[in-house]
Design a protein around this nucleic acid. Structure first.
Lengths: 231, 231
DNA sequence: CGCGGCTTTGATGTTCATCAAGTAAAGTGG
DNA sequence: CCACTTTACTTGATGAACATCAAAGCCGCG
């Protein structure tokens, strides 16, 4: 972890409209003065379950996972966030502590705004609040959707679902380097690491996908989609 | 379904503070003028997935379920709402159509406020917006929590979890009439109807619970809690 | 009264987790 | 930089957990 100094101004940030489009010039200056950019290496924990929330964060670069810690069983991954996502939006209003842990899957850069400043701006800007309601709702809906979609499927269907998820939602490409380990896939779709590997090998043998280490190429998208729907 | 006329004024509603505590007198009058109270019988569908959202609704009396329709497999119950819950809060901001269906489990009375009026009040009252952010966040967090708690458990653990859920969260009593059918329990915790029945019978035989038709009495809460934690 | 939905139990087979054991890859310290 | 340790990946064998199928009793309702 490393705080980046002398970094970009919010005014010219690519994500400005995504998040702070409804702020006045003054509000934006205030946010800019109270934000930090922080770099995390692959594997580093960004925040831990039950820790106090001190910042509103969004992802500028990289890939992070939200997950529930579980000592007895295994961790459960709730969602994968891509650049532009608000990674601390969950539970920021319902709790003063994190309900979930966050860790970097790839080297990532987080933009973190002091939570009190954030709340202050929120109290004074109606449009900003409405924006946030909508965004939060969308994030939550996506999580619920994904979770319910996964839990009703069998193993083959789950793997198909998650492969297509990375292709369509994260990388927008039918070929990509899997950002997560086999174990993390298992934690994401509730199955064992062994069965993740087995199912991937099966798909590989059946020429549905082509595996080369971390690299996945979806050779037969139609069949994969069919398995996703039926499995 | 039956619209109730000449019903109570919002001003003296038991749920006023729960929902509309931050409204001005004028706003409350506006809401009052544009609300309906509607009674639904057991089993009646209150709103259907993909239908346009025209009202903001909360539950005054009874018990309802939120669920995802699924033609191929079975329906999936997302949550059970008790009086005071905002049953259409989900997706009201992220979508203009319902993402989930809603149906009455018991005879229920819904209070429905015209969605445009609701949004209008929301735009003009900052405190109301903040309230809503917090409430919505809590509802979503609960759903995610429940869902993840269930999906990591085995059948016995799931049944134990749901029995305790009804006891602690819905009825606040160790004895209660199960409001849902065995099949609905199955849809709620992702298992088959047969296995719900089998597991309940097992618990009955082991003197952990006492079943009499729909009536459940938790005779050995400690053991049930242990099963819930370990299963 | 009979039809359909809910409930219950048993038998059977499938799906999946667990255990074991080995290889490959990636950190780690001397 | 190389030996060493740990972590990730892979495959197979086994048994447990669970779904499916079948059949029958029960209850409410038109």
């Amino acid at each position: 972890m490393e705080v980046l100094h002398g970094v970009s101004n919010c005014k010219s940030c690519v994500y400005r409209d995504l998040m702070f489009g409804s702020l006045t010039a003054d509000e934006l200056i205030l946010i800019n003065r109270n934000k930090k950019e922080i770099k995390f290496n692959r594997g580093e924990v960004i925040s831990k379950q039950n820790k106090e929330i001190k910042e509103f964060m969004y992802l500028k670069k990289g890939l992070v996972k939200l997950y529930r810690n579980d000592v007895v069983h295994r961790d459960q991954i709730i969602s994968i966030s891509i650049p532009g996502d608000f990674i601390s939006l969950l539970s920021i209003f319902s709790n003063s502590y994190y309900k979930y842990s966050i860790a970097a899957i790839e080297e990532s850069i987080i933009c973190a705004v002091d939570i009190d400043v954030f709340r202050q701006v929120l109290r004074n800007n109606q449009a900003f609040g409405m924006d946030l309601l909508e965004k939060m709702s969308t994030i939550y809906d996506d999580i619920i959707d994904t979770k319910f979609n996964i839990s009703r499927r069998h193993l083959r269907g789950r793997i198909a679902y998650i492969l297509l998820y990375f292709a369509d939602h994260v990388y927008k490409n039918h070929q990509y380097d899997l950002p997560v380990s086999r174990r993390e896939i298992a934690e994401l779709i509730e199955m064992t690491t062994e069965n993740v590997i087995r199912t991937l090998s099966e798909f590989n043998k059946d020429n549905i996908i082509k595996i080369d280490g971390k690299n996945i190429k979806i050779s037969d998208p139609e069949r994969l989609k069919k398995i996703c729907q039926l499995g």
